[in-house]
């Protein structure tokens, strides 16, 4: 089985988010970038297939050279090779178009992504990619088994889960549950050394213009101070009469 894991290179969850150029651009100054947390679950599941069922694992990202540390880290975790599509990622559908172009000429059986990236939160790439490729698609996946070409997956739905069956090739958007938190991989020294020698291919992107553009950003308004109440009677009173939520 040939697995491709799509990696989004995002600000660490603890990052303070700031903007420059009169709020027109994200300020990456002093921001630590990491593999998108959702993608870590997908990568860990890919490693499980590689080790338990035999599979090759390629990781891919769309972005400039500054995204390469996330690919190297994925290689250190155990991916076999990496691809960087050298194009500015400008919106989810455009990223999907860039990815689709590479996938069309490479016959991957299983495309794993995260449910959403924690920066732009588009939740767009996996569904758009599956549609462009006409592959089967399962979103919000919290459990995945593969036998031959047959896929059994568990999907989170509002208020529960749904069991779904489909066939490869497929795009699966994962999240926690795909593997447990404790089964996420942290690269060890040997992995990091080996990653340096693994292939990281840089491919040119295609011409693709985005239909959406973030023209400016805004931070949430400063919150007014928390009202401290001293009894549950007072709490019920303010929730009922002031906030009107009960």
């Amino acid at each position: 089985m040939k697995i491709l894991v799509c990696i989004s290179h995002v600000p660490d969850t603890t990052s303070k988010i700031n903007f420059t150029a009169e709020n027109a651009e994200f300020d990456s100054n002093g921001v630590q970038f990491v593999i998108n947390p959702y993608d870590e679950f997908s990568l860990a599941r890919a490693m499980w297939f590689k080790e338990k069922q035999g599979a090759s694992v390629t990781v891919i990202t769309v972005g400039d050279a500054s995204t390469e540390p996330s690919l190297r880290k994925s290689l250190a975790i155990g991916a076999d090779d990496a691809i960087r599509i050298d194009a500015q990622a400008t919106d989810g559908i455009t990223v999907a178009k860039q990815l689709a172009e590479v996938i069309k000429s490479n016959a991957y059986d299983l495309i794993l992504t995260g449910r959403e990236s924690i920066d732009y939160n588009g939740a767009t790439v996996p569904g758009a990619l599956a549609t462009l490729l006409d592959y089967n698609f399962i979103n919000a996946c919290v459990g995945l088994e593969i036998e031959g070409t047959s896929v059994t997956a568990s999907k989170e739905i509002d208020g529960g889960t749904e069991t779904l069956g489909t066939e490869l090739p497929a795009v699966i958007a994962g999240q926690k549950g795909l593997v447990e938190e404790k089964d996420l991989r942290i690269p060890n020294m040997r992995g990091i050394m080996m990653a340096r020698k693994k292939p990281l291919q840089v491919l040119p992107g295609i011409e693709a213009t985005s239909s959406t553009k973030d023209v400016s950003f805004e931070k949430p308004a400063e919150k007014s101070a928390c009202k401290i109440v001293t009894s549950v009677d007072e709490l019920i009173d303010v929730l009922h009469n002031e906030a009107k939520v009960i």
Binding site: T13, I17, F19, Y120, P220
Partner: peptide
């Protein structure tokens, strides 16, 4: 955007 840490005008 940015997990509720910001808004974008798109």
């Amino acid at each position: 955007t940015f997990s509720n840490k910001a808004f974008s005008h798109t």
